[in-house]
């Protein structure tokens, strides 16, 4: 009996492997409970290894390199990153303010978001997929389809979650598609990954004004990513193809090869398109003002 089983084993394992493959092909990637269980088990080991490697790297940088200058360099880089993010946000505020002039004065409000920081523990070593494992899971409120950001821009989206870890599909992955537009001209497109640099902004009409150097940001219309987060800068525009759309290459703002910490957007209100909402809100506000006898809303309450 055991001998017969030994002879059947190759066939059994082949059939099992094919069954797993076909089920993976039908369902969304990364939902297998077995794979999630393995992720939960190997996560702590990867955490230890990455922390050790980072510790060794830090010792080299701080003690064998120039002491003091490294720390000052880190502080200055942090300041620059924060200011660059503020510049992108300010440009968004200015563009929105220009559009809404002549109607009621609505301010662009940043959606109230709760962000969970996480460390990047491991990278997919193969050439087929671009994903990373982070040190935050469902116990910290992380869920599938939540967006993952960096202070320089978009990193990707959560595709698999275990209680303490999660797998993030990077924006450079072939399966990644992010609704985006050119910040300067509001030309819309879909930003998709090519397995590395550069990204490809698809479905941009040929009559749109797109130039190298333009900043590409999220539109927020897909419901996954907050609006106005930097994705990359246009590096090349090719209008000579026979397609209906222009070919736009985008260099990502995030250095995906050196990801260390990321932010997972835990709670986000649905994206609000103020251009659509403003005309609808005006009559409501006018009625509220009439009812309050012309007093500012909220006074005396």
């Amino acid at each position: 009996m055991f001998n017969r089983l030994k002879w059947l084993l190759p066939v059994i394992t082949l059939v099992l492997a094919m069954g797993l493959l076909s089920s993976q092909g039908r369902q969304e990637r990364g939902r297998s409970p077995m794979a999630s269980a393995v992720l939960e088990v190997v996560g702590p080991v990867e955490n230890i290894l990455t922390s050790s490697a980072r510790g060794v790297e830090n010792i080299w940088r701080r003690y064998f390199s120039l002491v003091g200058l490294t720390r000052e360099n880190d502080i200055l880089r942090e300041i620059i990153d924060r200011q660059e993010r503020q510049i992108v946000q300010l440009n968004e505020y200015k563009a929105a303010n220009d559009r809404l002039t002549g109607l009621l004065k609505f301010r662009d409000s940043t959606p109230m978001t709760i962000m969970k920081p996480a460390h990047v523990l491991a990278w997919d070593p193969g050439p087929w997929f671009r994903s990373v494992i982070i040190s935050a899971g469902s116990n910290e409120g992380v869920a599938v389809d939540q967006s993952v950001l960096h202070n320089k821009g978009v990193v990707g989206r959560v595709v698999e979650v275990t209680p303490h870890y999660a797998r993030v599909l990077l924006a450079t992955d072939f399966n990644s598609s992010i609704d985006a537009f050119i910040q300067r001209t509001r030309a819309v497109g879909i930003l998709s990954g090519q397995g590395g640099k550069p990204l490809n902004l698809k479905y941009v009409r040929k009559d749109e004004d797109v130039r190298p150097g333009d900043l590409v940001v999220t539109s927020g219309l897909d419901g996954f990513f907050p609006k106005g987060v930097a994705l990359g800068t246009v590096s090349r525009v090719d209008r000579h193809s026979a397609d209906l759309f222009v070919s736009v290459e985008v260099t990502p703002t995030v250095s995906f090869d050196r990801l260390e910490e990321v932010l997972v957007v835990i709670d986000q209100r649905p994206p609000i398109d103020w251009l659509t909402m403003a005309p609808r809100l005006r009559p409501l506000l006018e009625d509220a003002l009439d009812a309050s006898g012309g007093q500012p809303l909220g006074v005396g309450r």
Binding site: L5, K6, W7, L9, P10, T13, L16, A17, M18, G19, L20, L21, S22, S23, Q24, G25, R29, G30, S32, M34, A35, V38, L39, V42, A122, D124, P125, G126, W128, F129, S131, I133, E160, R167
Partner: peptide
């Protein structure tokens, strides 16, 4: 033996797919 080698291939392949993030199988 063959059956041990097949078992090892199956287990190692599962580990590679599960940790690497590719298609299981």
């Amino acid at each position: 033996e063959l059956w041990l080698a097949i078992l090892a291939a199956f287990a190692l392949g599962f580990i590679r797919d599960a940790v690497g993030g590719g298609f299981l199988g």
